[in-house]
């Protein structure tokens, strides 16, 4: 069950370019940021996303959790996600 939802008015291109259609704001995501964003778009939960990254990338779970929290805080600050 998704604990993070992404608003509908968002377009992300393959290059990691993000366009918020309601406000006209644009952003760039790095590779991992883009990867995470795609998972959230597929309604994956925080835990699932974390595990997927841990499988694909060379990273320990503690650092990953810290980074994810920080990333999500930023996305929230930019109104790019809603958390339950």
């Amino acid at each position: 069950m998704a604990d993070i939802t992404i608003p509908k008015n968002l377009a992300v291109s393959d290059s990691g370019f993000l366009f918020l259609t309601s406000t006209g704001e644009t952003f760039t995501l790095n590779e991992i940021g883009h990867f995470i964003f795609k998972q959230f778009q597929q309604n994956d939960s925080f835990e699932t996303v974390k595990n997927k990254i841990a499988q694909e990338y060379e990273v320990d779970l503690n650092s990953l959790e810290k980074d994810l929290d920080d990333f999500i805080a930023q996305l929230k600050a930019y109104n790019l996600i809603e958390t339950k």
């Binding site: 291109s13 290059s15 990691g16 370019f17 366009f19 644009t26 760039t28």
Partner: peptide, 11 residues
């Protein structure tokens, strides 16, 4: 189109 802006921004 925003595509050009995207290309120059990202790439």
């Amino acid at each position: 189109d925003i595509k050009i802006f995207e290309r120059i921004t990202v790439k």
